[in-house]
Simulated assay, not measured.
Amino acid sequence: MSTTTLYDITVAYDDAGGTGGADGEGDGGEVLVLVHGHPFDRSMWRPQIETFAGPERRVIAADLRGYGGSTVIPGKTTLTTFAWDIAALLDRLGVDRVVLGGLSMGGQIVLEFYRLFPERVRALVLADTFAAAETGAGRAARNAMADRLLREGMGPYADEVLTKMVTPHNAEVLPAVAGHVRDMMRGAPPEGAAAALRGRAERPDYVGMLGRVAVPALVVVGSEDTYTPVADARVMSEGIPDATLAVIEGAGHLPNLERRAEFDAALGAFLDSLPPITSRVIDRSGSFENHRGGQVASPRRNP
C-alpha cells in the first residue's frame, strides 16, 4: 500500500506492475485503473491486480475518500468529487490516459470521469452499474440509509445485504469471498459511506451521454445481480457504440470476486482487443488548483 496527499485528503492506493514513464504508459504498457463500489475498498480489486499487473500493464486501485485507508470527509461526497480525486491521483502518479473501470458506484464514478475528462480515457469498463439518473424515491431511500448508517454503524447493514452483494449460493460455497465482502462492508467508515450515499442521491442522468462515448467499452454484469440486473447492463451496452456485453453466469453484484476466472477472462479479452497505445504528452500543471475541498472550480460542466 502507498499513500499520497491530494489537496485536503490523504489517499491510500495500490500501484502494481508497469515500467513507469513520464506519460504514465511506460514503454508501451497499459494503465488500468479500477474504482471500487460502495461500501467497499480497493481490496475488492486484489484478484484483478494479481491477474493483470505485470511488465506490460500497470494496475492502480485506490480507496475512495471516505473508505478504506483514505481520509473521511463527513457530509456529502458527489460523483464529481470522486472523479476529480481520481484525476488528481493520476496527475500525482504521472499518468495521462487510462483504461478506467469501476463496479456499481465505481461505475457511476467512471461515467462521471468520462464526462469531465474524456481525453484521459482510453477505454471504459462498466461492471454491475447503471446510467440512469436517481429517482425521487431513490433520493429519499439513499438519504434515509445515510441517516441509518450514522445511527447504527455498518454492522447491521452489512449483515442485511451480504446475500444481495453475493448470491446466497455463493455466500455458502465461497466462504472466503463472503467473509471478505462482509469485512469490507463492516469496516467502511459510516461517515464516509453516508457522505457517498448523499452524493449519489444527486446522481445525474448518463443515459443521454452513452451515444457520445467514443472509446471502446466493456459492460459486465452478474447474471443474478438484483441491484443492477442484466437489463440495466443492456441499456449501457446498446447505448454505447460498439460496446461489448459480458454476462457472468452464476454471479451476483460482485462477479470479479464471485466468478473471478470468468470475469478476468472477459476483462483480459477486452484489454487484448484494444488498439495499440499512441504516446502523447499533455501539460497538466496546476491541475490540483482546479479542485478545492471537494468543490470543482473550473469552467467544466456541472453535473
Score class of each variant (00 low, 15 high):
2 S>W: 10
5 T>A: 10
13 Y>Q: 05
25 E>F: 00
29 G>I: 01
30 E>G: 15
31 V>Q: 07
32 L>H: 11
34 L>Y: 07
40 F>K: 00
42 R>K: 06
45 W>C: 07
46 R>P: 15
46 R>W: 06
50 E>K: 00
52 F>T: 06
59 V>R: 00
60 I>T: 06
71 T>I: 12
77 T>R: 02
84 W>S: 05
88 A>G: 03
96 D>W: 08
100 L>I: 08
101 G>F: 10
103 L>D: 06
104 S>I: 05
109 I>G: 12
110 V>W: 11
110 V>E: 04
111 L>M: 10
113 F>V: 13
114 Y>M: 07
119 E>P: 11
123 A>S: 14
124 L>P: 09
128 D>V: 11
132 A>P: 08
134 E>M: 15
135 T>Y: 13
136 G>S: 04
138 G>I: 08
139 R>Q: 05
140 A>W: 01
145 M>C: 02
146 A>Y: 06
153 G>W: 01
154 M>P: 03
156 P>G: 06
159 D>I: 01
159 D>G: 06
160 E>G: 04
161 V>F: 12
161 V>Q: 07
168 P>W: 14
169 H>A: 15
173 V>C: 15
174 L>S: 15
179 G>C: 12
181 V>I: 05
183 D>G: 06
184 M>A: 00
193 A>I: 01
196 A>T: 12
200 R>A: 01
200 R>L: 11
202 E>S: 10
205 D>F: 09
206 Y>M: 08
207 V>F: 03
209 M>N: 00
215 V>L: 09
218 L>A: 00
218 L>T: 02
221 V>L: 01
225 D>S: 14
225 D>W: 08
226 T>A: 13
230 V>H: 04
230 V>P: 04
235 V>S: 09
243 A>V: 09
246 A>I: 05
247 V>A: 00
248 I>P: 12
249 E>N: 10
250 G>F: 03
253 H>T: 03
255 P>A: 08
255 P>I: 04
258 E>D: 14
271 L>I: 02
272 D>R: 14
277 I>F: 06
280 R>Q: 11
281 V>C: 00
281 V>R: 03
285 S>R: 13
287 S>E: 01
289 E>C: 14
291 H>E: 04
292 R>P: 00
297 A>D: 10
297 A>V: 10
298 S>T: 15
301 R>F: 11
303 P>T: 09
